[in-house]
Simulated assay, not measured.
Amino acid sequence: MLTKKERLEKVFRGETPDRMPVSAWRHFTEDEHSGAKRWADKLLEFQAKYDWDFLKLQPRASLFCEVWGQKYDYDNYGKNVVAPCTEHLLDYETLGSDLAKIKRIDNSPVLDEAAEGVSIAVKALPDVPVFQTIFCPGAIFEMFFGALPSGRYRATSRTGGIVEAITRYPEETALAMQNITDTLIAYVKKLKEIGTYGIFYSSAALARDGYLTLPEWEKYVKKYDLQLIEAMKPMKVMLHTCGIHANPERFVAYPIDILHWADSADGNSKLADSAEWIKNIVPAGGCDERLFGQNKAEEIAELSAATLRKMGKRPFVLCPDCSLSVKTTDEEIKAFRNSVER
C-alpha cells in the first residue's frame, strides 16, 4: 500500500496508483477566527476523522482582505461562509483615492497568524501532504468592494466591481494588483520555509464567460497569477477555477500540477473528456458539491463511483467540485470518502 505522498506523486507522474487520491474540504466558521491553534486543531480533527490523501486547509474567506484592514462581523455569519463585511476598502464615489490604500505589505499579523496555523498542521502531519489556500489577487480585489468573490452559481456583472475599476482607473488598479501580488509572494516565502507541501490557488470565477474580456483577464488576472505561482515553486500548485462557465482550458498554460473545476456545472468540460486538452496537468473534481448537506449520501456514493468508472485507470484526484456545505453530514462524507476503497 502506498503512503499518501507516494499515491499523490504517482499521479503527478501520470502513473496509475493503488487507488485514486481523495480529499474534501469545508469551512468551520465557529473555529476559523479565534487564533491559529484553534483553526489548525479543527482541521486536524477533520483529517483524522476521514483520513484524506491530502489536507486542504480552509482559512476564513475574509482572511486576505483583512490584511489591508477590511473589517468583518464574525458573530453573524448567518447562512454564509463569509462573515458580513462591516467596513470595506473600496467605495465607488472615492475609488480613485481608495485604490491608493492597497499598498504592498511585507509584514502582516493576519498572514503571520495564518502561517502559524499552517505550521501547526504541517508539523502534526509529517506523512500527509498539506495544501494552504490562497486567493488570487483578482479575487481579493473583488472582495474589497464588500461583496463575495465571484464563483459557484452566483451571477457576475460587468457593472461595478473590478470591471469599473479597470475601466476608470486602469493604472491605479494595475498597481493595486501588483501590490497584492507582492504581499502574497512574501507570504508564500514563509509557507515554503514552514515546509508546506502545496498551495490550493483559488482563481474564483475570474475566467468565467461574460465577465472579464480575455484581454482584461490576461492583463489584470493572468499576469499576476503567473508571478505568484512562480514564487510558489517548488511547492505543488492545485488551481481552482470556480463555478459555471469557468474555462478550465485557459489554465493549461499555467505552471501548475493539479487543475480543479466543476465538471457538474453548466458550460464546463467534463473531467472524463479532459485528456484531449489538459496535457500533463492532473485533473481534479468529479462530485457535485451541491449534493452535500441535503442527506444525499446514496446519490453522492453513486456519483463518485460513476466518476471513478468513467476515469478508469487514468490518474486524477477525486474531490467535490467546490467547498462542502457547513450542513454536510457525516454519512455524506463517509459515502464520498469510501467510494475510492470499493
Rank of each mutant, 00 (worst) to 15 (best):
E87P: 00
V67R: 01
R104A: 01
T329R: 10
R158L: 01
T156F: 01
E289H: 13
E331Q: 14
P315S: 14
T196P: 14
T181I: 12
P283W: 04
Q294Y: 04
G160V: 05
R250M: 04
F46A: 15
A139C: 06
L175W: 01
M143G: 04
L2F: 15
W277G: 07
R314E: 07
E93K: 03
L191S: 15
P109K: 00
I278K: 04
A246V: 10
N268Y: 10
L111T: 12
K5I: 09
A246N: 06
K233T: 07
D98Q: 06
D75K: 14
D257W: 04
W25H: 15
I229Q: 07
K236C: 02
K56V: 10
V317N: 01
S269I: 00
R309S: 12
M311W: 07
D91P: 03
E276M: 02
P17M: 09
I256C: 05
Y92H: 02
P109T: 04
E299C: 02
M143Q: 13
E302S: 07
T156H: 00
Y224G: 10
G267F: 02
R309V: 12
K233F: 04
I333Q: 09
D257G: 09
E172A: 15
D31C: 10
G243I: 07
G117H: 05
S203I: 12
T241E: 00
E299V: 07
R38Q: 12
A115V: 09
L184N: 06
A253Q: 12
V82I: 11
V81Q: 05
F251M: 11
W52V: 08
